[in-house]
Design a protein around this nucleic acid. Structure first.
Lengths: 128, 128
DNA sequence: CTGGGTGCAAAATCTTTGCAGATCC
DNA sequence: GGATCTGCAAAGATTTTGCACCCAG
């Protein structure tokens, strides 16, 4: 199960780059940036190495979890639970916290208008 | 700016279907479901109508906001702010709420392991 | 050597778009 | 009739994968 990874200049540089920036870049940004150093770099290499770094817990992917969009006809503010095993999305019976936006805006100059919370874990069906 | 929309059986059925389900379906699920009724339905129609319903505020899309994944080398739990105008992602200086998982799990049979909060609004650069 | 890593290109996914013809008002 | 909608197919955008060669250990 455990794969022993050799070092690779590309992977080391990707991690270094990610650690040096606060902008939460996309794979493409990383690719363009590293291409200056590795003239023949390919996107495959970028994605493969990002995957390895994520597995090693050194990098986190900010995505939706699902590979496709999901749609909801309940437009009232509410939170979601996403099962990490089967991908099912359920509503969470927790009151919507109206104070959160204000608290998040404290101490920064962002105009916080809304927020979203997703909980992750194992759903009833998938759990023991 | 305002576009006057005619009725369309397909759009009405999509909304009806979304309202009747709690499973937060994908476009493909909707497509497969509606295909039984509209033999020649196309994905284009599904996506176009979902877009209209979203504009009308009748449906919400659960996605990441960005069309591509973003990566972060800061693996400590923290929250993100996403600018709705320029798409920039910043870290939010708000303490991570360890109690949230437990509170979300209350009253349901999910095993809540983690959570994520994204705040949306206008960032310093884009704001007046 | 050997197995992981790389570049390249093709494939796979998911979503959007152009167009001609059908439909609603 | 005219604007909107639909199906179809092609194009887009992003990510993944197969393969032959390369390189670290």
């Amino acid at each position: 199960m455990e794969i022993r990874h050799k070092r690779s200049r590309q992977r080391e540089k990707i991690l270094e780059l990610l650690r040096a920036t606060k902008s939460h870049p996309s794979a493409d940004w990383i690719y363009e940036r590293l291409k200056k150093e590795f003239k023949n770099l390919s996107m495959g290499t970028v994605y493969r190495n990002l995957g390895i770094l994520i597995n090693q817990g050194l990098v986190r992917k900010i995505d939706f979890g699902s590979t496709f969009d999901r749609f909801d006809a309940d437009v009232r503010p509410h939170y979601h639970f996403i099962c990490e095993r089967c991908g099912a999305i359920s509503d969470v019976e927790m009151p919507f916290d109206e104070t959160l936006n204000r608290r998040a805006g404290r101490g920064c100059n962002f105009e916080v208008r809304s927020h979203r919370i997703e909980f992750f874990g194992i759903c009833e069906k998938c759990g023991g």
